[in-house]
Design a protein around this nucleic acid. Sequence first.
DNA 1: CATGAATGAGCCTTCATTCAT
DNA 2: CATGAATGAAGGCTCATTCAT
Lengths: 216, 216, 216, 216
Amino acid sequence: MLMSVNKKIERKKILDAVTRKDIIDAVAATLINEGMQGFTMDKVATAAGVAKGTLYTHFKNKDEAIEVTMDSIVEPLIEQLDAIVTSNIPPSHKLTRYSALSFTFFDDNRDLFRVILYDRGQAHAPKQRFHDSRYWSFVQKLANIFEEGVREGDFLPLPALKIAAMFIDANLSVVMQRLANKITGNIQEDVSLVTGVFFRGIGNRDNESKKSGCEN
Amino acid sequence: MLMSVNKKIERKKILDAVTRKDIIDAVAATLINEGMQGFTMDKVATAAGVAKGTLYTHFKNKDEAIEVTMDSIVEPLIEQLDAIVTSNIPPSHKLTRYSALSFTFFDDNRDLFRVILYDRGQAHAPKQRFHDSRYWSFVQKLANIFEEGVREGDFLPLPALKIAAMFIDANLSVVMQRLANKITGNIQEDVSLVTGVFFRGIGNRDNESKKSGCEN
Amino acid sequence: MLMSVNKKIERKKILDAVTRKDIIDAVAATLINEGMQGFTMDKVATAAGVAKGTLYTHFKNKDEAIEVTMDSIVEPLIEQLDAIVTSNIPPSHKLTRYSALSFTFFDDNRDLFRVILYDRGQAHAPKQRFHDSRYWSFVQKLANIFEEGVREGDFLPLPALKIAAMFIDANLSVVMQRLANKITGNIQEDVSLVTGVFFRGIGNRDNESKKSGCEN
Amino acid sequence: MLMSVNKKIERKKILDAVTRKDIIDAVAATLINEGMQGFTMDKVATAAGVAKGTLYTHFKNKDEAIEVTMDSIVEPLIEQLDAIVTSNIPPSHKLTRYSALSFTFFDDNRDLFRVILYDRGQAHAPKQRFHDSRYWSFVQKLANIFEEGVREGDFLPLPALKIAAMFIDANLSVVMQRLANKITGNIQEDVSLVTGVFFRGIGNRDNESKKSGCEN
DNA sequence: CATGAATGAGCCTTCATTCAT
DNA sequence: CATGAATGAAGGCTCATTCAT
């Protein structure tokens, strides 16, 4: 039964992590199965196979539980988005990558995001944070890409934030349609659709060495 | 104080209508002031100046109260959208009109729609209905306009439902940004932005050389 | 089934009063049977024979329930004390009356006051109010009587507030001993004891004439 | 690092004592800072810098923790009271000493006693024990002094237990007033007041057409 | 012995809904 | 129909206590 203190601590951390992971999974599962408004800590506890009180050793309260779970799921999306933003490729490629990322990511997490997208809001803090902070940070990042494209003469000088939001929501729009119709795969096709519309819509034709179109 | 039975009944109907109208207004006001999650029948009753029980003589339950109120507010939007759909103008004009309609309508009801757009969800039935039925019926109508434009050679032959959804959400996207930043007025500018991007994006350039297809 | 509106309202008020009275009685009973810390709204509801939710149509919360109940019980005591204070009798008679009042009052409500006196405090607001406001208002009133007696040359010019508090607590002291030993009746005797000590002192004057028995 | 078994055990005892002392201090501190009703084992553990479980190796439960802490604080008071009781001085001197002891002791521990006196109760067992056992043992001891005084002809033959309780509570009464008004020092004055009243009474002998007694 | 994550009974409170008047 | 007191299921959260390590 001898074990170094370090090993003990380490093992404890792993056990904790396991429980915590179970709980976060349970939060996500409950969110998926019950929707935002059917979400209760009781159900989470049952789903996680732990006592109700245990949830409160991991989260301050219900809102934080949702928040943390959201974050843990959205985290990879943010990381990949950041990778795109800071990569050394042309802005239009970045947007295409973002579009593809949207489709794969939401495809991978479709059940949860059906809830998030359809059930937006409800709780106090989460709502604010998700929408105000997370969504707008996405918009901001995309806007930067757009502005980069404008500087390079690829895109027309349009209001970046609005274009960014339009692009994000147009992508989500198609994602939602995929979700609603339970469509999987064929991502490339939908990416082409969205980016096609936007690149023609925001593209600078002069730069494309083509004849002039309808400039607004 | 004599009054014919008919008159009595008639008066009753009017009074009922008045009460019903008051209640619906109260529901909307409560939704605005308290948000979806702060919405309680108590508050509605207080706001309407009636007893709590009275609400249940007008609506089966809370969900129906919200539902009916939503409908009563969205009704004019639907009517105007239908007018646009059935009007005898080119498809691109119809879309421009829809875009303008979005902005004016949400501007007029910004307080309520801030709640609906940000607080989407909460109650079971309303959520489903709002999104599944109302939203998709909008998408369908817009899709018909697109298809009309495709048939007339104005638009590229793209998947109509997806394009319709993209257009709706792109408009909402800018609407939400207006709501978030508390921007009013300058509707024309935003209409031009959205329609500009979409017309260039979905416009059939071959056809553009024939007609002057740039609608604002 | 005809009944004037006034009668209806009146009857309703009475019914309400009955329920309210029942609940207040139940609060007091629960306080008595369970003590401050065993006091729960569940138990009150059960004792009152109403649903838990009903309690909250009468009181904002647990603290208010306790507070209101306390007040309703102490009210007659306060009224009688005020009657004594404002009556047109010599200060010493007033104090004697107060002493008698203490004994009869606490005798009448001995079960509840066993809780209050032994279980002082516990809840947030109630504690503060009971002690800080109710107790000190009593002290103040008694102090006024003492000062009156000082002005009339009956009492020595001692710090009124302290003397008042001492007198109140000395009375309570004996009350508590009665409660602890489950003694009833013989009030006159205890009144004489307390007032006797206070009015006259406990020193044996015969003995005092021999030695100078004033110890400090 | 060699050490005899005895030394090890001894050291352990000391360490234990240190921990126990820390915990008791933490209980007292928590009582002071949070009041009876804000008192939780969590807070004690944090204050003591030990794990929550550790508390249960020192005390059977929460009640015992409070109980033991109270005892450890009241212990010196009891010892000093016993010293007074068994000392070879006149009864009246003993009472004066007791009065002075009350004031100094509660002055020294005013923070904790503010909680005990104002927050009396809360926990089941502690309450009972504190009041029933500790308080009454004090009363008994004081009563013995009174009876001694009666036998010696210093005091009138009044019911000793009641007089003792009155004296204790009259002293506490002034102590509480000091606590409430955050008064420190001037102990002698208050001792004289209380003992003066008790020894001499509050009646004005001049007014009673008698010679002057002991004026303070 | 110490630890502290886990426990789960239990508490307070809310609120949609009902129903006797 | 209107009323609003009563209902009671349900929810979020606390905390004394336990026990495997």
